[in-house]
Design a protein around this nucleic acid. Sequence first.
DNA 1: AACCAGGAGAGAG
DNA 2: CTCTCTCATGGT
Length: 215
Amino acid sequence: MIEKILYQRLLKYYGHQNWWPGESMFEIAISAVLTQNTAWKNVEIVLERFRKFKITTAQELLKVPKSQLREMIKPVGFYQTKTETIRQLSKWLIQYENADYSNQLSTEDLRKELLKIKGIGNETADAILLYALNRFTSVSDKYTQRLAYRLGVFPKLEKYEVLANWLLQLTPHTVQDQNEIHALIVTHSKRTCTKFNPNCSRCPISDACQKRIEI
DNA sequence: AACCAGGAGAGAG
DNA sequence: CTCTCTCATGGT
């Protein structure tokens, strides 16, 4: 089964990804929102601005006037909605950090809280849980969806929950492995299979590819 | 110059 | 439940 070799193949070929590329819990959480349907390069522009203006904590972000915040994050697109989302997320992070019971809350409860924030959906919530809060969960996305389909794991493009469970079966049950597999799938998809290449000469899993069609 | 990028929400049917 | 629109900038 492809499940047994996929993780090993990707890891051997691409190496450890050392995700998430952020310098703090705050930066990782905020950038998870900023990168929604946006190229990471645009997120880097905004992160650099934040560092330049000393916005390195949730408290500092909330001090910035909304109008100024909108201008600062323009490069990532959807700047009006994302401004509201990162402000609400910042408020949540402050509450989370101040709560003594934060470590007692289950990952599922934290997930529900994050999903209440307008602008945070399944993928972003899981990304924050896994990469910012070091909680055990999986992060699925469109790349995972297409990859699983092309490998013949599912006969169609499956919904988030199904793919999230597939990822949990794919690797050992640790935070680090889920961290790695999602990063590997993103890296792999960006480098070789964003557009389907029927030759796939530099694809480490081309022999396992069953559905050779573009979706 | 269309098309996509490390999505999500609202509305229609 | 699934489909379709919308939000928006920056790089190919």
